[in-house]
Design a protein around this nucleic acid. Sequence first.
DNA 1: CCACTATTGATAAACGATTCGCAATAAAGG
DNA 2: CCTTTATTGCGAATCGTTTATCAATAGTGG
Lengths: 128, 128
Amino acid sequence: MERNTRQRNAIREAVAQAGRPLLPQEVLNAAQMQVPGLSLATVYRNLRALQEEGELRSVMLPGESARYEPAGHGHHHHFQCRQCARVFEVEGCPGNLARLAPPGFAVEDHDITLYGRCRECLAAERKT
Amino acid sequence: MERNTRQRNAIREAVAQAGRPLLPQEVLNAAQMQVPGLSLATVYRNLRALQEEGELRSVMLPGESARYEPAGHGHHHHFQCRQCARVFEVEGCPGNLARLAPPGFAVEDHDITLYGRCRECLAAERKT
DNA sequence: CCACTATTGATAAACGATTCGCAATAAAGG
DNA sequence: CCTTTATTGCGAATCGTTTATCAATAGTGG
């Protein structure tokens, strides 16, 4: 049966608390606040397990490796800051994208990624 | 000075003729019609060189490695077929995506990827 | 409190994609 | 037609990410 380990809970918490999709390495950094000895392998193992359970969702962005966010946030897209490289959720969706596809193509889904500067990085820039 | 080799021309042609972004391996397959002995390393070298020259553009899709298309096709997005995995250009753009970002975020750019079935794969399905 | 076994940490290994090293080849100018 | 040297083909090497191995550890039900 599945066991509730400190490691798994810390990983679950880290993703939930972050409020944005995290890289495995970021999950490790965050979860090590709770479980200092935590290893990257364990993070990978649990991210995969939690994803298969349907508790987490993997977020793929162009040219980036997988990040993880809690499942069940409904349809949304993402924003990546060009300065700090962090990824954030953005609500809403333009919708009606199927019309863009060439005739004869069936559109079933879509991904949108916005790029720019996040609030924090903009604030930091102004101070310089 | 830069030389015009059969290999480079074949690679350039392959990308131009394809009409869709190609993976290095796909470029190799196509260009080997013209230059049978062509090697993958040469494809990589030339794709990189042509990109730096501004003749080609690399296309990144979520979870995929880089594809290459001719530069200068203007702003557009891409469609990936879930069956054959090929990528196609789609014209047009919903525009006004900046409004989706959280307050305080500056949106500078965006990527849109559509997913579904391409015409060929839809046609093939009907025949079964 | 025990026994069972899922889980962990540490490290090596796998993996796919891309690049490098080098001798052999072949454009291009004279 | 030479000479120069950019370019090529091949295989090995690298890169970052992810997974496998395996002995040691620690949840969990009884």
